[in-house]
């Protein structure tokens, strides 16, 4: 794979999060990262930061390792240079999304929030169980309000409605 350096991409990440500049590639982040350990370094936060510094946009977006980050923040806690890795990864993920590369599970959750205001809508069985346990009924947001708000900032344009959405997750209990 040829590597294209895209300075503009780097500049854009920096404009969202200037802490990128301070990375001196010490690898403390990768040392503490549980996913790096599990994948034998296949997922490597230091390398992702390096690629961001170099502006290797294609590499970051075409091969979206960045989605494997747990956002556990261990690297952020330990980075001697106070690089905000998880926020930088979010900027990269936002770019992936803009290019239509959104993993299905993230897409379906975002659609649920767009349509209902919540990631896991209150189902009838849950409402019933709430009453069984003596909890009063609860009024969540009017979905229309959230939809208006999110549409006004173009959030719906980022999502893919062509793929089947799986809205029943294990959170139904």
């Amino acid at each position: 794979m040829t590597l294209t350096i895209d300075y503009d991409f780097r500049k854009q990440i920096r404009s969202y999060n200037a802490s990128l500049d301070y990375c001196f590639q010490c690898s403390t982040c990768t040392g503490i990262c549980p996913v790096a350990q599990l994948t034998n370094g296949d997922f490597n936060p230091r390398k992702l930061i390096e690629a961001s510094l170099l502006g290797l946009k294609d590499m970051l977006i075409e091969e979206p390792k960045v989605w494997y980050c747990l956002t556990c923040q261990k690297c952020v806690e330990l980075c001697p240079q106070k690089v905000e890795l998880t926020e930088i990864f979010d900027v990269i993920k936002n770019y992936c999304v803009k290019e239509g590369k959104i993993p299905e599970a993230f897409n379906s959750q975002a659609i649920s929030v767009l349509e209902t205001g919540v990631a896991l809508p209150f189902s009838d069985p849950i409402m019933k169980r709430r009453r069984q346990l003596g909890l009063e009924d609860y009024k969540t947001v009017d979905p229309k309000e959230i939809k208006t708000l999110l549409k006004s900032i173009g959030f719906d344009k980022l999502l893919r409605f062509d793929t089947p959405t799986t809205d029943k997750k294990e959170g139904g209990k």
Partner: peptide, 11 residues
């Protein structure tokens, strides 16, 4: 919204 899945889509 959740701090992992949602800002990944749009901060």
């Amino acid at each position: 919204p959740d701090p992992t899945g949602f800002p990944a889509v749009d901060q």
